[in-house]
Nucleic acid binder design. Structure first.
Length: 495
RNA sequence: GCUCCGUUGGUGUAGUCCGGCCAAUCAUUUCGGCCUUUCGAGCCGAUGACCUGGGUUCAAAUCCCAGACGGAGCACCA
């Protein structure tokens, strides 16, 4: 599997020879578990690491204890999600552990004349900046700045009272680059115990820029929303005489198949309101939900890598993920019949039909059509079967009960016939799945992205193990979540 | 308002830097056929795209100009 897109691919390929080691980072904000869009970064970076025998770390950029407040559980969940996608980070860092490093670099920057403390109200500065005017603090000397910065570090200001700005070019034609904020005061303590005493926090552009250099990152991938970051950070790099890594910006990913908006805060809210059962609710577009549905991380990774690294926004078709996953699981997934009786969404129903004629006492479909050595299932038939209402033919028409045989519907009963499989070839009979009536069928709940579906599976289904992948014939692939006293619970993967 | 960036079939992508081998690659989707007591898979086939207009050139998806459309930034968020 190769990443297919030009820029990053050729970038890394060309540079593969120029660097001793390709070094990259995944830099998430741990403000919640991941939605599926987050999988793109580790998928692509991890794949590059494998292609070029490179290195990558996870660095939690958790420098905003307030607006993007970290979720303490998310740190570990994100690492688990990355492992599920198929990659092991070579190192894990937390920006909130590295505060003294950022302070030290800020002091250096101040001494080099690259920064000044500023107490302008936000709006006032913005107005001046937009008209290209320096604020009164801009020509402050390094000594004053240094002492005011130390006061910031010591927490002597409240939120909003003082910031440290990088001295860039106040007349730069791009207003986004003019004298941006490197450090600000935040009154809310960081949720991590180890970092809870800090009040003076670096902004992303400063923290991330310093870390990328200190970690010897050679290649950065990030979203187009950060396309000005490199330009901002270059001012700091220039003050320090550092060389900026190769950088690439890609667009947003949208997923075509979910009603739920793909945003951490939206999903969190739906969970809090009880609309979703949790982060792994199959209706949620989260990594955890995909995992519970039995979609292999590798399938997600492959689909993400195929998206490439275009700077325009892309739509990820779920069918691409599903297609990859089918390839991965089909061989292992044994077949079972499951008739759907009712669902939250969808028009399901079952019908029980007596058998007539010289009907056999058992159906014996293969466990897996490609693997005769796995044997055949046994569906003991007494005197009636249950099929899905949608499969009920017109009176006088025929059906082929899969793994059992040909029957003709007379309006009330299914009469076993001696038809040859020819009737199927000729299109006279549809092949349908079924379960025996009155026998030991298994009550099954199938949890899907469109809501739950309940019905009955054939007796042999009771012998499946939790976590096993099965294919409900003509319904789709599912992961067995567990067998309870009242019902078995399964999660729908895809058709 | 200022500043960036992008635009190849339904979706994603290759090709664009270094114009010709591109009547445009591969995957997915959809549809059809084959195979299989006929699910899925597999095999075969079909449908389907270079944003528009100019220009340069023997030759343009590829270079130049203009326009349209779309996205992003101008936060004491990441």
């Amino acid at each position: 599997m190769e990443p297919s897109s030009t820029s990053a691919d050729s970038l890394a390929r060309q540079d593969g020879d120029e660097y001793d080691e390709i070094r990259m980072r995944v830099a998430p904000n741990p403000n919640g578990p991941w939605h599926i869009g987050h999988a793109r970064m580790p998928a692509v970076i991890g794949t590059y690491k494998e292609m070029y025998d490179g290195w990558f770390c996870v660095r939690f950029d958790d420098t905003d204890p307030e607006t993007k407040r970290p979720d303490l559980d998310a740190y570990d969940q994100i690492i688990e999600d990355i492992e599920y996608l198929g990659f092991d980070p070579d190192a894990v860092y937390r920006a909130s552990d590295r505060m003294e490093t950022y302070y030290d670099h800020a002091r250096d920057l101040i001494e080099k004349g690259g920064a000044y403390t500023c107490s302008c109200p936000q709006g006032d500065f913005s107005d001046m900046k937009n008209s290209g005017e320096a604020c009164p603090h801009r020509d402050k000397d390094a000594e004053t700045t240094l002492s005011e910065f130390e006061a910031m570090v010591d927490g002597e200001y409240d939120s909003g009272e003082m910031v440290l700005r990088v001295r860039t070019d106040i007349e730069h034609k791009n207003p986004a680059l003019r004298d941006w904020v490197a450090f600000r005061m935040i009154d809310t303590p960081h949720p991590r115990e180890e970092a809870s005493e800090y009040r003076c926090w670096p902004m992303l552009d400063f923290q991330s820029g310093v870390d990328d250099h200190l970690l010897d990152v050679t290649h950065i991938i990030r979203g187009i929303d950060l396309q000005d970051s490199a330009k901002r950070q270059r001012f700091v790099y220039d003050y320090f005489g550092w060389e900026y890594p190769e950088v690439l910006h890609w667009g947003h990913v949208q997923i075509d198949a979910f009603d739920v908006k793909m945003s951490t805060s939206t999903i969190k809210q739906l969970i809090d309101e009880g609309e979703l059962d949790g982060w792994d609710d199959p209706r949620a577009p989260t990594v955890a939900a995909f995992r519970r549905r039995g979609i292999r991380g590798e399938a997600i990774t492959d689909a993400m890598v195929e998206l490439g690294t275009s700077t325009s926004d892309v739509d990820l078709a779920m069918s691409a993920v599903y297609s990859h996953n089918r390839d991965l699981i089909d061989d292992d997934a044994n077949r079972y019949f499951f008739v759907r009786e009712s669902g939250d969404n969808g028009d399901f129903g079952t019908v029980e039909l007596p058998l007539a004629g010289d009907a056999p006492g058992e159906g014996t479909p293969p466990v897996h059509p490609e693997h005769e050595d796995r044997g055949r299932r046994s569906l003991p038939v007494d005197d009636a079967v249950v099929i899905e209402s949608a499969d009920l033919p017109e009176a006088g028409e025929k059906l082929w009960l899969k793994g059992y045989g040909p029957v003709e519907y007379d309006g009330s009963e299914l009469r076993y016939t001696d038809d040859d499989i020819e009737v199927v070839r000729e299109g006279e009979a549809d092949v349908v799945h079924w379960v025996p009536a009155g026998e030991e069928t298994v009550s099954v709940r199938l949890r899907t992205p469109e809501g739950d579906v309940t019905g009955y599976a054939e007796p042999a289904f009771a012998g499946t193990d939790a976590d096993e992948m099965v294919q409900f014939v003509r319904v789709g692939f599912a992961r067995v979540d567990g067998h309870g006293d009242d019902e078995s619970v399964t999660y729908f993967a895809h058709e």
